[in-house]
Computed example of a mutant assay.
Amino acid sequence: MSVPVLDSYVESTERIQPNQANNYGNAHGGEVVRLMDELAAIAAMTVASETCVTAHVGSVDFRNPIPVGHVAELAAYVYETGTSSLEVRVDVQSRDPRDDESEPTTAARFTMVAVDENGQPVEVPSVVAETDRGARLVDGATP
């Protein structure tokens, strides 16, 4: 059984508040990674139909800050699976909510593992790029 890559594609938007910021008035890096991790889990669970936990976070690239009051626009999708693991790409953009223009801020790859109610790994379906957009996402998932 396989699942189309686009079926795992999820988005989230969150306005950055002062309690999420560092002393420079920008979203704290750890807060951004927390938001990314949550969305990675949602994308993975969409494919696995099981609870998914974080096994590894690799190549977190912070490009630009997200100022307080701006929104963090996150997008995540599963681009590859193993026996019980799911590779998830997460990208974040920053945008002033009064404007249409956004800029990339953060990108990372997460390895999630599907687990049963006892915390034991379970098998997951594969993902396939059935469309041109799906293929572009898979191609862009890794450097």
Rank of each mutant, 00 (worst) to 15 (best):
T81V: 07
Y77R: 14
L86K: 03
L6M: 12
P67N: 12
L39N: 05
T105W: 01
V92A: 15
V60K: 10
D91G: 11
V128T: 15
A41C: 15
D96E: 12
E31Y: 10
E130P: 06
E14F: 01
V122Q: 06
H28L: 01
S102N: 00
A108D: 00
A43V: 00
Y77P: 09
G134Y: 02
G140Y: 09
S59W: 10
S84T: 11
Y77F: 15
E80T: 04
V115T: 08
L137T: 06
V3P: 02
T13K: 10
M112D: 06
M45F: 06
R95C: 00
Q20L: 14
N19K: 02
I66A: 12
A76M: 05
A44Y: 06
E87P: 00
A76D: 05
E38I: 14
S85Y: 03
V124F: 04
G25K: 05
A43T: 00
P67Y: 08
Y9C: 05
D132S: 05
I66L: 13
D96C: 11
T46C: 09
C52Y: 08
R34W: 02
P4K: 09
T111N: 08
D91M: 05
S8F: 06
T54S: 13
N19S: 05
A48T: 03
L39W: 05
I42Q: 04
R63K: 13
P143A: 14
S2T: 13
H70L: 07
D116N: 13
T105K: 02
A72W: 09
G30P: 03
